[in-house]
Simulated scan of single mutants.
Amino acid sequence: MNASRVASTLMALLSFGALDCAAQSSASHGGAWTVTLENDAPTGSDNNYTNGMGVTWVSRATDTYDERSFVRRWGEAASFLPFVGNDGYRTYVAWSLAQEMHTPDDIKAANPPGDDQPYAGVVYLDNVVYARGERSMHAWQLRVGMVGPSSRADRVQTWWHKAIDADKPMGWDTQLPNEPILNVGYTGAYLLAQGKLGKSASWRVFPVVNAGLGNYFTGAGLGMYGEVGWNLVDAPGGTALRQGFNAASTVGVGPVDRWSVSLSGGVAGYGVAHYLPLDGTVFRHSRSVDSEPFIGMATLGVTARHRDFVFFVGRTFFTKTFETQRQRAEFGTFSLSWYL
């Protein structure tokens, strides 16, 4: 369980104060696209949260759009949310379409053990509204989707394993049944400290808190994220410590004229009341295992930015997510963002 989804991996990382900002005006581009792939192949395993892929679009500040545009109206409609539209904050919106695959330890078994991670395919659409201030960011998320055969995760994994001549997953007939997903979430981050390391290197540290409510994830998390690098821009690097595929590394910052490279890392703890890929569906009977009430996570990554592109590669690790888990969940993340 990529408890990357466990609480869906620390939501939207955020942005903060002006370190050596090499970014151009966020109004000089038409938004940013991000393609993300998460997979456990780099870890040598094929279980729990085994694959995720998605595409995200992040707007520039909504007040830079025409008054009649959908993006601006959407941001204004969200002004009832705390911090959104407040003095000192600018609003950004993002949409993500993603698919996840969760499998047990032995994918060659047609009837996996009942005490192992159930097969689960998930497809969802995320909308995130960001309120970004000088030293803090607040992100409000709405997730709608489906778990079950309708996600087509079984077909995608079977096709892919055949294409690369890997073991055929035999147990998708036992996957969680179709059930709609509705989840809301919040993430807040605050720039705690920052400093310089020589002429062009700098660092920053900030705590991140998040909470979710719904039949995908219900719980809360608290973490600490840090980044050190060369020509850091006014946005966090990569996809570390975030929920889903929300490309926070492009929120409020545009293309950069020179190379920016950073190393990021973080740790987090989650209190989990319900996590669908483990605890099963809510309204229909399904396979399930009891998720651990407290789960830890650590992540490391490297981000490189140049002109219209942002590239990230990272690795995420989890403590045991359920009592009878055969192997701890870990996976690699690769993402590429570009500005239009």
Rank of each mutant, 00 (worst) to 15 (best):
T281Q: 12
Y49L: 11
S288G: 05
T50H: 07
P149G: 02
S249D: 12
F245V: 02
L14I: 14
W57H: 04
A189M: 13
E67P: 03
A166T: 06
W33N: 05
L241P: 02
V256A: 11
L37A: 00
L81M: 00
L81C: 00
G296I: 01
A18P: 08
T36R: 02
S25N: 11
G252D: 06
A329K: 04
K108I: 09
M297D: 07
L241D: 05
K320A: 13
G17F: 00
F331T: 04
C21M: 09
S150G: 15
P236R: 05
H138G: 01
T91S: 01
P177G: 11
S286Y: 07
L336K: 05
V35P: 01
D126Y: 07
P177A: 13
W95D: 08
E134N: 12
Y89M: 14
D40V: 03
G145M: 09
S25R: 09
A41P: 04
W57N: 02
R242I: 10
G223E: 04
L197I: 15
W74Y: 13
G265F: 11
C21S: 15
L232D: 01
V282N: 10
S25E: 06
L276T: 12
T299S: 07
P236V: 15
L222R: 09
A329L: 06
N183T: 00
V313P: 06
W74T: 13
F83T: 04
I181V: 14
F334Y: 07
V251L: 09
L192P: 07
D63N: 09
V267R: 00
G280R: 01
L336P: 05
Y124A: 12
A273Y: 11
Y49E: 10
F317W: 10
R135H: 03
K162L: 06
H102L: 11
G145S: 11
M170A: 15
G214W: 12
W95V: 14
L37F: 01
V256Q: 11
F206Y: 14
W74C: 07
A41T: 13
T324V: 05
R72P: 04
Y49N: 03
A193Q: 03
H102R: 07
D105I: 07
E67C: 04
Y92I: 07
G195L: 05
Q194A: 00
R152H: 15
V147C: 01
L241Q: 13
L340H: 13
S150F: 14
N231F: 05
I181G: 09
D290H: 12
V144K: 06
S286T: 04
Y270A: 06
G85N: 02
G265D: 08
M146L: 15
G229T: 13
C21A: 15
G88P: 11
Q141Y: 06
G265S: 12
R73N: 14
G185V: 03
W33R: 04
L241M: 14
F334T: 00
G269Y: 07
G271Q: 08
N111K: 15
V289I: 03
L13D: 07
G185F: 02
G332I: 03
S15H: 08
E76V: 03
G198E: 01
H161Q: 13
G237D: 04
P236Q: 13
H274R: 13
S202A: 08
F318Y: 15
T187G: 15
L176T: 13
T43I: 10
R328Y: 09
G266Y: 01
E67M: 08
G88N: 08
Y270D: 12
V282M: 12
V144A: 10
G332E: 03
N210D: 15
S202C: 03
D106W: 10
V313K: 12
Q243R: 07
